[in-house]
Computed example of a mutant assay.
Amino acid sequence: MGQVRRRRFLIASGALLATPLASFAQQRGKVWSIAFLASSKPLSRGEPDPYGAAFVGEMQAAGHTFGVDYVIEVSSADDDYERLPALANELVLRNVDIIIAVTLPAIIAAHKASKTVPIVCIGVHDPVGMGLAASLARPGGNLTGLATFYGDLFPKHLELLKSILPKVTSVALLANASVMRMVPGGEQIVREAAQKLGMRAHAVPVDSAAQLPQAFASMTRERAGAFIALADVIFLRERRQVAELALKHRLPSFFANRENVQAGGLVSYGEDGVEMFAQAARYVSKIMKGAKPGNLPIEQPTKFHLAINRKTAVALKLTIPQEMLLRADEVII
């Protein structure tokens, strides 16, 4: 295993319990080994895990009992994205049955590591354009899952921003630097969408949570009137720090994850992360029952959640349009 530290966990009742992963024979009564490969953990130590609970719950609904029909381990790079290829290769060498890759860097690492081990993706950006699938309807190969198209989400965030802040002309994009490097033309997508609404957009990349204070200082120097955070586990895990820095710098904030708004961000609009993990379980169930990943269509999210934090709006002396409040799925007061 060398310098690569292996972390093995079982997910049960929303908790992560340390346990070794066993090896099982290929026969009736087989216990499947399912590995989550992630760039980082989205939760701080000790926080409840609604994502793991959603996965296990959906698997149980499909007739697969945790600890009897399957076991789970989580392999996390802990924000060190350069470790992902080694972690992915290690999973393949240990003959795990299915890899669930979370976030684009993990998905790319898993795809490079194996063309045979079934891979279920959560949040893959433009899988056809990235060369990960032949098509959404019939991806081919060993990869399937849930796609996210940044080009579809950014314009919506900008529209929401413009509705609340009609006079803003400059907006910052807070993004994980590693992810931005992997998305061809990602920054250009944002700039073009902003230009259509009469705004100027510029990227503020960070490589780690330690760089967040400098990132917000940079936004202030650049006179950004607000910022949009690209969905990423760093901003999800550090959501309280991000919200506090946004208020400190008097910057209205827009996110993809509702948890960021629950922690003090202003507005979120995006896929339901918990539902995506439940949907991933449905893919895994089909594979366990004999389906080939390449024959399972890659799906795009159909349910989006709009959350607004009125307490944060008051703190920033902003007025949320009544129409937006009525459309919101969640309003925090």
Rank of each mutant, 00 (worst) to 15 (best):
E275Y: 02
A231Q: 10
I99M: 10
V117G: 00
M199V: 06
I107W: 05
A246R: 06
K196D: 04
M199D: 08
G225C: 04
Y269R: 01
E90N: 12
V274W: 04
R250P: 02
F254I: 04
R5W: 01
M219E: 03
D207Q: 13
L326S: 09
F227K: 04
G29T: 13
R239P: 06
A215I: 04
A175W: 00
A177N: 11
F66A: 15
T116I: 10
V190D: 01
K30N: 14
N89S: 12
A53H: 11
H305K: 13
V96L: 01
A113Y: 07
N260G: 03
L247E: 11
R221T: 12
A62C: 12
G290C: 05
R181N: 10
T19I: 08
S76L: 02
F55N: 06
F66N: 12
H111F: 08
Q262D: 09
R7V: 14
P213G: 06
F304N: 08
V56C: 06
V74A: 05
A278N: 03
N309G: 12
P213T: 08
A25D: 13
G14Y: 12
V117K: 02
I320H: 06
D80L: 11
A134L: 13
R94V: 01
A106N: 05
A106P: 07
A18N: 13
S208I: 00
I164D: 02
I122S: 02
P213I: 04
H249A: 12
R181Y: 00
L165W: 06
P155A: 07
A137F: 03
T220K: 15
V179M: 09
T65K: 15
D49K: 12
A177P: 00
L316V: 11
G273Q: 11
L212I: 06
V171N: 03
Y283R: 12
R250S: 11
I108P: 01
A61M: 06
A281Q: 03
D126A: 09
L306F: 10
K289S: 15
K286S: 13
P184I: 08
I99W: 09
L326I: 11
R258N: 03
L84H: 09
L174H: 08
N89I: 00
A18E: 15
L174Q: 07
G294Y: 07
A209I: 12
T148H: 05
G141S: 12
P139V: 04
V102C: 00
G131K: 10
G67Q: 08
Y269E: 00
L84M: 07
C121K: 12
I189R: 09
V206C: 04
T65A: 14
Y269C: 01
G29P: 11
A133H: 06
L16C: 01
